[in-house]
């Protein structure tokens, strides 16, 4: 168990060390999200979201997050295959540690993204959130699902041609149910409405996809 944790930690810290030296994923993801956010904000206008537009705000926020994630998350595995470092990893790391390390890296990357983009979004579009805690939990639950699903699909895409477009094509049908659920949950939190099953179902989605990914990843990764 200790060695399993150590191995996972080794991968997570390697990912961040390489990332902090190249800053490729961080800058891509953040710039992408902020550019989109500014475009949305300018289109909505200086007064921010009107009461009628308010239900649309969680949709816009999650679409920004989803597309920013699409721009940066596949890199975890695509970069390994492109720079021929995937085979050394195959020969040295246990698949379960590798998957967990990579997923944790993607998750932390997403949480950084959410931590930067969400406050900006709420301020620029003048959206007031009635239930901040539920809203934060919805962001976390959505982030976990996005990270797990994207990591598995990134590992698949890395072994194919036309990687960039293929990632979006493969990921969307898998991630859309989650997106719908977390948008509902965020909306409920913004409006401060009573309980909705959306958040619970999103947690169910996360756990099902996590279990499935842990089982499927060794098959994707190894021949």
């Amino acid at each position: 168990m200790m060695s399993w944790l150590g191995e996972t930690w080794a991968i997570l810290s390697k990912e961040w060390r390489c990332e902090l030296r190249s800053r490729y994923a961080l800058s891509t993801v953040l710039l992408f999200a902020i550019t989109t956010l500014i475009a949305v904000s300018i289109s909505v206008g200086p007064a921010g979201a009107t009461p009628e537009q308010r239900p649309l705000m969680p949709v816009l926020l999650w679409l920004i997050l989803l597309f920013a994630a699409t721009a940066g998350l596949p890199r975890t595995f695509v970069h390994e295959e492109e720079t021929h470092t995937a085979d050394p990893l195959r020969l040295a790391a246990r698949p379960s540690c590798l998957f967990c390390g990579k997923t944790l890296y993607n998750l932390t990357l997403l949480l950084v993204l959410e931590a930067v983009v969400t406050p900006l979004f709420l301020v620029l579009l003048q959206v007031e959130v009635a239930d901040l805690w539920s809203f934060a939990i919805a962001l976390l639950v959505g982030g976990v699902g996005l990270a797990v699903g994207s990591t598995l699909i990134a590992a698949m895409v890395a072994q194919a041609r036309a990687r960039g477009p293929l990632f979006a094509v493969l990921a969307f049908p898998i991630l859309l149910p989650l997106l719908k659920l977390v948008i509902d949950a965020s909306f409920v939190a913004v409006a401060g409405e009573a309980q909705s099953p959306a958040l619970g179902l999103a947690v169910l989605y996360d756990s099902m996809v996590t279990v499935a990914s842990l089982m499927l990843f060794p098959v994707v990764w190894n021949p």
Partner: peptide, 15 residues
Amino acid sequence: LSAVYAVLGFVVAPF
């Protein structure tokens, strides 16, 4: 890879 994708789809299908 496509077999994995089909199984993954099956997991998401109930939703």
